[in-house]
Design a protein around this nucleic acid. Structure first.
Lengths: 207, 207
DNA sequence: AGAGTTCATGACACTCCGTCAACTTTCGGG
DNA sequence: CCCGAAAGTTGACGGAGTGTCATGAACTCT
């Protein structure tokens, strides 16, 4: 009566291993949201499962590592959306606009790590070099270099361009999560305008 | 034979209090750089002074709090430089260019928290809302709103503009510290161009 | 079914933390 | 200058969290 369709293909051993791992991750998400990252102990996490304390260490080296796994799951959810948006884009403007729009929308609406994170000020470390995150950055870089190749964007330093985009994206994302009076659309339009035309092109504020 | 010129004005009590506090901060900077933030214990810090373990807690509540004090010292060093640069600026372009230039220069050349921080990947938390940091942000915001008032910058959302500037500044700062092949001047010109004219205005890469 | 492998268990030893009662130093009024 | 009060220092101690490991249970394969 398992919902895990892969289960038949695996032995029971592998199956419980996978389910234990997931149980720990789920418990961690729960407990982090409840107590905050700093305040939760490894024991708190394992207590929220039906496993014994020692078992935790068969799956993760530390609390930090579970957190990374959480981040990875989060990145795994955004990345396809960003990819789809990029494929749809026909111009550099659409590319930039779509990427910001999608990212901000995710941050605001998906009840992911971002939300619980910002509720706990100590968890400033939003970005962690988890495989999925790195892959996402790589994809962005490839597209930027393609844009440079094709002459749509001047032959600027791609590292600095990446840094600027990422910096703006995450910094504005913080505001989106922390405050309610900022609209996802406005934020996306703002960031897009900044990259396309600098401060002079910025949209006027609604009063 | 003290070098502390304020000492005569203070009683001995206050004097040792101040010097103990500074001793702890200095020891912390040292030890953080050596072991990394996560790996150092409060005991490590106090052991690097000639004080007893309990004394630490007369000055700071936790390791985190010493770290904040360090950050505050760092901010205290940049802020006057940024202020001077702003006063010198006669146009918005000079304002933006000068600010980025000064900040990047500080990050790269002042052997401050930034440097030790980047050597320890776990210390991603560069920004902390320490009094000096908050004051610095406030100053920036005032200038931005003045620029908006005077019509030099469109009437855009100042929060989003702040976020963009700060995001770009810190993200590029990370690259500056992490890598040697990026020039402070190039970075400042890049960021300035981005804000003044968007991607089309970006300087071409040196090959 | 039996030998072998893999994993779960929870008690244990260890580290670090923050406190506190006892002690030392400084202050200030007489 | 002296002495009682105030402020600060000390390190030992109780408590909490960590990661490990010997033991035993569960699964796999033949």
């Amino acid at each position: 009566m398992s919902l895990d369709l892969d289960a038949k293909a695996r032995g029971k051993r592998e199956e419980t291993k996978a389910s234990n791992r997931q149980a720990i991750i789920d418990a961690a998400r729960q407990v982090f949201a409840e107590l905050g990252y700093g305040a939760t102990t490894v024991r708190d996490i394992i207590r929220a499962t039906d496993l014994a304390s020692g078992t935790f260490y068969n799956y993760f080296k530390s609390k930090e590592e579970v957190f990374q796994a959480l981040q990875d799951e989060t990145a795994l959810r955004v990345r396809p959306r960003l990819r789809a948006e990029r494929i749809r884009a026909r111009t550099f403007e659409e590319f930039i606009a779509g990427s910001f729009r999608t990212f901000f929308d995710f941050v605001k609406n998906d009840h992911s790590t971002f939300a619980t994170m910002r509720r706990n000020p100590e968890m400033q470390r939003v970005r962690i070099d988890t495989p999925e995150v790195v892959a996402g950055f790589d994809e962005l870089r490839v597209d930027l270099e393609r844009a440079i190749e094709s002459g749509v964007v001047p032959d600027a330093d791609p590292d600095l361009l990446m840094a600027s985009i990422v910096g703006v994206a995450f910094e504005i994302a913080n505001h989106l999560v922390a405050r309610d009076d900022i609209d996802v659309d406005d934020a996306a339009k703002f960031a897009t305008a900044l990259f396309l035309g600098g401060v002079q092109a910025l949209p006027k504020r609604k009063r």
